[in-house]
Simulated scan of single mutants.
Amino acid sequence: MAVAGTVAEAFVQEWHDWHRRHEAVRADRHGFLAVTGLHWLTAEPRRVPGAPGEWSTGAEGVVVTFGAGEELVVAGSPRRERYVFGVIPERGGINAGWGDAVIEVAKRGGHDIVRPRHPDHPLRVEYAGTPVFAPDPRWVIEGRYVPFDQPRPTTVGAAVEGLEHVYHAPGRIEFELDGQALSLTAFDGYAPGSLTVLFTDATSGVTTYTDNRVLQLDAPGPDGRVVLDFNRAVNLPCAYTDFATCPLPPAENRLPVAIEAGEKIPYERG
């Protein structure tokens, strides 16, 4: 019993350490909680609240033209008068400095956007953490990764109405929960071979955020074994701010069971 208790305590402590690191990234001075606006660029130059210059997009890509005394710092160098960011790839982005703020220039769903990030934004300054379910080993589930013959282009919706994202799904994950066979389409993760799973479940809109949660998975083993630790299911930025373009899960990832693990609805949306 003492050994079992020690293992359980270690599991809980490891989870708390992980979640503390995750929260620190979320609350970073230039993280998503610092975003003050989402601005869609067009061919017509216009000013963007919270950023210097007039912004537009066209054949050259994203362009900003500065007025007297205005500048941005890009790649460590001050840029004045007119600066061409160029054509930005889908899901790519460039962060430029402006005083203590960062001006994010990015492309999402085929559209060029500007998102100013100001450390003194009230959403970040007043952030008090995210409520969670208590970590429980019950929600650490072994699954099997089944690769597709070829990665499948998968179109999903977004937190912004009318916007779509296209991801390549390399395979699906099959697992069981309380005797029920389930599966999740997986997208590529951040590290080579790793996987990302977007999902909703029976708790969505009740105790967890309505639109989505995300789970990052290590690369499957040689036999396809993969571990889904739903205790580490977290919210995407759209759970906190309307200035995010987060993807929605594919239809097949709407689980018919209640995953009572991971992060809950943020206080900001409560």
Rank of each mutant, 00 (worst) to 15 (best):
V166Y: 03
A128V: 05
P222H: 14
A128S: 09
P131F: 04
P151L: 14
N231Y: 04
H118A: 10
L72W: 06
V146W: 02
L248M: 11
R46L: 10
P170I: 03
L215K: 01
A4E: 11
R117H: 10
R26E: 13
P89H: 07
E176R: 07
T245C: 08
E176Q: 04
R46D: 09
R47L: 05
R172W: 01
L236I: 05
T207Q: 15
R144I: 13
Y267P: 01
K107N: 08
L215G: 01
H39Y: 15
N235I: 09
A233W: 00
D211G: 05
G143I: 09
V160F: 09
D136T: 07
H168F: 11
R108L: 12
P247L: 05
D100N: 13
H30V: 09
R232Q: 11
W98L: 00
D100M: 08
T65L: 04
W18Q: 06
G162C: 12
H39S: 05
A24E: 12
R115N: 02
D112M: 07
G224P: 04
Y145N: 07
L123W: 14
G270K: 15
T210S: 13
E60N: 11
G76H: 14
P237F: 00
T210L: 13
L41Y: 03
Q13E: 14
L72C: 04
G171T: 01
R225E: 03
Y167K: 00
I259L: 04
P250K: 03
G262M: 07
A258N: 01
D229H: 09
E104F: 10
H19T: 02
H16P: 06
F11I: 02
R269F: 02
R29L: 06
Y167W: 02
S204Q: 05
R232F: 10
V226T: 08
F199T: 03
A191M: 13
A101Q: 13
V74Q: 01
F175M: 08
A2T: 15
